[in-house]
């Protein structure tokens, strides 16, 4: 199950991560010239009454939509009823859930704010994104552990292939909040969001938007070698960059077909459901800079990595 055989093109990317500036920074060893600062970057009228995850997601989405040429000012200029939203997050609303439980224990429900209601449901980020830009297509929230980011890209592509949408706004977001710190054992962790705009090839062509990359294949399975084999396909695409998290390490056999490996979590910490979308943004950035070969992204779920996802990103070609 590597995909429906119809390619989908990436036409925009965006990033809002504490300590990073542009998407190019994802592949730099350290430092960023103008790093995103949540203290100033997550404020403003549109951010009111929203949780930290939603605010990061709105920032990254705005960048990606603008990058794709789909914003006129701050207004969405694409096909609103044919644009779907896919969000991947595992920890997005845990701060609300835990804070509200504390408030009930201390003050009863009378201590709660009615404004918190949307954030009790795990899909609030996707709802806010739809409202902000009037996106009336399918609205999907993937909470699928460590593979969630790549899974979100899989489903965005599937919804385009199934003709449920022409455009997909895909966002991976994990906020750094107190419950997350405790849950991941106080290890370093991401505080931010990444966004990708995916488009059907006919729609991209109809509006003359340049393709930045093509998601050639993606899959979800039990074993890393099988998943990698599946997305590389029968023509065994040469891989210029393999984005892989800590855990499943490329074996020695990889050296013959893979030039470079990179683990984004080495710099960003635990990225959870945002990882796959961050990898996609990093991969597009790599291809933008004319990096050779394809980009392979892999991620895994669970303490024993019993589920893996893989995605192959290639430079735009004639079919994109």
């Amino acid at each position: 199950m590597t995909g429906p055989g119809r390619p989908a093109a990436v036409t925009g990317i965006g990033l809002a991560v504490s300590g990073l500036g542009t998407p190019d920074d994802l592949l730099q060893p350290d430092g960023a010239e103008e790093a995103f600062d949540p203290a100033t970057g997550l404020t403003g009228r549109a951010m009111r009454h929203k949780d930290r995850a939603s605010r990061f997601a709105l920032r990254a989405a705005a960048d990606a939509l603008r990058d794709a040429g789909l914003l006129t000012g701050a207004t969405f200029a694409g096909p609103a009823s044919r644009t779907c939203v896919v969000v991947s997050t595992n920890f997005g609303n845990l701060d609300s859930v835990c804070t509200f439980a504390d408030t009930i224990a201390e003050d009863s429900v009378l201590g709660l704010s009615p404004l918190g209601l949307p954030h009790t449901s795990s899909n609030s980020v996707a709802g806010w994104l739809a409202i902000e830009y009037g996106l009336r297509g399918p609205n999907l929230t993937v909470c699928n552990g460590g593979t969630g980011g790549l899974d979100a890209l899989f489903w965005a592509r599937a919804m385009i292939a199934a003709d449920r949408a022409d455009v997909a706004l895909v966002v991976g977001v994990e906020p750094d909040t107190a419950p997350v710190a405790r849950l991941v054992g106080h290890r370093p962790r991401l505080d931010g969001a990444a966004a990708v705009v995916l488009e059907s090839v006919p729609h991209r062509r109809s509006r003359g938007a340049p393709p930045r990359a093509v998601i050639t294949a993606c899959t979800h399975g039990a074993a890393l070698p099988d998943a990698v084999r599946a997305v590389r396909g029968t023509d065994r695409q040469p891989v210029g960059l393999w984005l892989t998290p800590a855990g499943p390490r490329p074996g020695d056999a990889a050296s013959s077909w893979c030039a470079t490996t990179r683990d984004l979590t080495a710099r960003l910490g635990e990225c959870s459901g945002a990882l796959g979308v961050l990898q996609c943004v990093a991969g597009v950035s790599y291809l933008d800079a004319s990096g050779p070969g394809a980009v392979l992204a892999t991620s895994a779920d669970g303490p024993d990595h019993t589920a893996v996802a893989a995605l192959l990103l290639t430079a735009p070609g004639q079919a994109s």
Binding site: M1, N90, F91, S121, S122, N123, N139, L140, T141, V142, C143, N144, G145, D151, W155, L183, V184, H220, G221, A222, S272, D301, G302, P303, T306, A307
Partner: peptide, 27 residues
């Protein structure tokens, strides 16, 4: 609770051997 308990994939993998599991939090 552990982070892996938040979605249902690991439990279904353990119980049934399903590996292609997707949890959608779609209200």
């Amino acid at each position: 609770v552990s982070a892996a308990d938040l979605h249902f994939g690991p439990a279904l993998r353990r119980r049934f051997g399903f590996t292609r599991t997707y949890t959608f939090a779609n209200a």
